[in-house]
Simulated assay, not measured.
Amino acid sequence: MSSHETSRPAATRRRVLFGGAALGAATLTPLSQALAGAPVPPGPKPDVPLLFQIGRKPTPPQDAMMETVSSRLPTPPAGGPRVRSLALDNIHTGERLNVTYMENGHYLPDALQAINHIMRDRRTDAVAPIDPALLDLLSDIRRRLEARSPLEIISAYRAPGTNARMRQAGRGVAKNSYHIRGMAADIAIPGYGLADLRRLALTMGRGGVGYYPRSGFVHVDVGPPRAWRG
């Protein structure tokens, strides 16, 4: 698969590095400790209510208490890492991204834009904000597994029209999928079994976990904690 990479000038600390650059060293939790919790029993895939939609031009919801990710970056949880990185591989487009997206406890807008692009809807090229909480979840999964390989993105943001077409085709897609809101990703990590990846995501308890062994990925999202098998 060919690799499409984008470079940035090296004159800033906010580095967006494409290709095979290695992530900086970090304190890692052994997989045996990460899998210590009891897994959530699987159940039917829920159809969650649609809070808001994100398309090519996201429209803020009417409720003033809710704001889209694009309108204001959230404050990372207290006590978390001050520096966060991700290594991503979009298996459909061949693009790879190695990026530090948080420095000194602050999300970096230019790095988030690069992540939004690589996690876009591959069928329409629609780009929308990916929830930083999802990025933190993906970063922690990769860190706890001590993964050296990039995290493979099978699907991330999904435009409403794309989601509707997949649903009509009988792809087992939820009508109001968290993919539409940039809050979900279907992932795999080379060298790690899907069952281990699923167990880790379940023990973290930070959202939904769908297990799709026949399709070769695990779904993770930052909605309510729940579990199902596809």
Rank of each mutant, 00 (worst) to 15 (best):
L151M: 13
L112W: 03
L138K: 07
I141Q: 00
R167Y: 13
L134G: 00
A156W: 10
D136P: 02
S155E: 12
A128P: 02
R144M: 13
I153E: 03
A128S: 11
N116H: 07
Q168E: 15
L108A: 07
A164N: 13
A126V: 14
T124K: 05
I153A: 02
S155R: 15
R143D: 08
A147F: 06
Y107V: 01
N116K: 03
Q168D: 14
A156E: 10
H117T: 12
S139P: 03
R122I: 11
I118M: 06
N104C: 00
S149F: 13
M166G: 14
L108C: 08
R120K: 11
D140Q: 13
L108I: 14
E103H: 05
I153F: 06
G161I: 00
G105D: 05
A128M: 10
R143C: 01
I118L: 03
L138S: 04
I153D: 01
M119K: 04
L134I: 01
H106K: 11
P150E: 09
L134E: 03
I130K: 03
D121K: 02
A111M: 00
L138Q: 12
I115W: 06
D110S: 10
M166S: 09
N104R: 10
V127E: 02
R165C: 13
L138M: 15
D110K: 10
L145P: 11
Q113W: 06
N163C: 15
P129T: 05
N163Y: 04
R167M: 12
D140S: 08
R165A: 15
